[in-house]
Design a protein around this nucleic acid. Structure first.
Lengths: 230, 230
DNA sequence: CTAGCGTTCGTTGCATGCAACAGACCGAAA
DNA sequence: TTTCGGTCTGTTGCATGCAACGAACGCTAG
């Protein structure tokens, strides 16, 4: 999972580097949604032949990031607003599950990591460092996911977030100060539940938090208001 | 999703037919877990060249069904017991989510489908038709998933079930009569909650049902008892 | 000016060839 | 007997070539 660092730029361990690089290109926003990604272009861009590029594109299609129209071409896929709502619903469920599982694990080092994360978040907020804050939020959620000690959950979560990644990049530019305060406060509630080993409480708190943040993101994105559910 | 029927055996619409066929071969149990699936073997088995086979195997690896060891070969992957537990935890969460979402949708035709399904289940139980009963159980769950009106949820669920499919094939041979009765009863509770538009109740009932059935499956499989959680 | 049609261009889909590597097998030495 | 080393085979990884298809463009007729 973290082998994106140690490879010699030429001799690749698996095809993961290429897959990651192409994915990064897609998610980087360098190309507008709907832009064509021809195999020949990518092959000379990454200096490989069309074959590995093709395999990579198939993977990305399976991840929902690109749209392969047979005999026509591959295009960057923009998730519809509806799909984003759907993905957030799943996100809420999975993160709730993770929080519940983590609560059951008792006193694990992850809790201290979360504690530290919250402190850092306060610091970033005081310093008005929005970038750092966004990083910390991401780490907070990811720590809970990985802390659930469920490898398959991590896989599904990663898939989910990949599909949301493009949109997140577009959206998370500015966040209201009020929301930041509320969000950190919700993090605190989650951690409190985790420390109490309150599985149901942790799940509920986490779901509530994700729900609120999703609502914020969705309403903030475009003017069209959205009902996440009810 | 249901285009596995209408294609002319020769002219394939997408590569989905090939992917489906290879997946089916993997899940059919014709090969033991750990058995090698060489590209040349598959290519002549399906009368295509190695290239599309390679792409297909990559997909299946991404789905968690096979294990590609670089420069060595592709092997049928058997999920570990732990992974199965993990997958069931996710299943519980996703099906709970689906039930909750479906409950919010109000009176949709799916509810009548579920009603009919339960009646048929009773009939199959009376007739001691285990195969038919298993089919109906599968349909019941799938109706709830698709009824949630969340396409991304369906995708994730399908991925999940594909990973459980091999194991399900091994396990679901015989089910205790007592469990069957309980299971159908739990289905009834879920439907009742759905009719009441009780979103929380439906979610809880569904999770409880999946949890119970998972526990049954896991303890029944091998003698080793398992703690699903707590 | 518009609608319909044929051609051309770009792209994918697949087959095949070649090189490189992992693992097995066999033999020899201790 | 055990262990070590070399060879050899089977497999993958990738590059490339060719055929086929879709879309766009221009041309012509009305």
């Amino acid at each position: 999972m973290q082998q994106t660092e140690n490879f010699k730029d030429d001799e690749v361990i698996d095809d993961l580097p290429l897959l990651d690089r192409v994915r990064q290109l897609v998610l980087s926003g360098s190309f507008s949604p709907g832009a064509p990604l021809s195999e020949v272009f990518l092959s000379q861009a990454f200096e490989v032949s069309r074959t590995p590029i093709r395999e990579t594109l198939k993977q990305l299609q399976h991840e929902g990031l690109v749209d392969i129209r047979p005999k026509v071409g591959t295009f960057i896929r923009e998730p519809t607003r509806r799909e984003i709502v759907e993905l957030f619903q799943i996100k809420e469920s999975l993160e709730g599950l993770a929080a519940g599982l983590l609560a059951r694990r008792g006193p694990v080092p992850e809790l201290d990591v979360l504690e530290h994360n919250i402190e850092e978040s306060d610091r970033a907020t005081s310093a008005e460092d929005a970038v750092r804050y966004a990083e910390l939020v991401h780490e907070f959620h990811r720590t809970i996911i990985t802390g659930a000690d469920n490898s398959k959950l991590v896989e599904h979560y990663d898939r989910l977030m990949n599909q949301l990644a493009y949109h997140r990049l577009v959206l998370r530019t500015a966040e209201h100060p009020g929301r930041i305060k509320a969000s950190t406060s919700e993090h605190r509630v989650v951690l409190s539940m985790l420390r109490d080993k309150d599985s149901f409480g942790a799940e509920a708190a986490m779901r509530n938090h994700v729900h609120a943040s999703a609502r914020e993101v969705l309403t903030d994105a475009r003017t069209a208001p959205v009902q996440l559910h009810t």
